[in-house]
Amino acid sequence: MSKTRHVVARVDDVPPGTRKKIAVAGRDIALFNLGGAFFALGDKCPHESGSLCAGKVVGLAEADEPGRYRLSRDGEFVKCSWHGWEFGIRTGQSWCDPANTRARAYEAGVERGAALVKGPYVADTFPVAVEQDYIVIDL
């Protein structure tokens, strides 16, 4: 089945470091702005379906040895709001079990409104203006 590109939000609606929960074609999606780049994850933790969008965006806790704590990759992970499992925002992969435990990741991008009005985009929830930038995701 071929993917459909959906226009889901104005770029201004999701400033860097924030996230927004959106509904697309009956699915809840967590949309993240990571330093100007957009990433979309199914808003459903693969563990027990908790909302990722409602979780905290965090860095990666590491240690070179017991008792020596370090935080790296600031803001690149989201902790599920229910049990605290960590998922990489870029990939949806869990940190603990990247191969098998992952949130659904969707391709997200930015398009000018001028390009969007030509179609074949689906923008069912709000009007698209030519001069605005929009976040689109493939679903």
Partner: peptide, 15 residues
């Protein structure tokens, strides 16, 4: 439990 709380003991970096 490690999956949810491992940040507390980050040296525990595998299963």
């Amino acid at each position: 439990e490690w999956r949810g709380v491992r940040q507390e003991v980050p040296w525990l970096d595998r299963l």
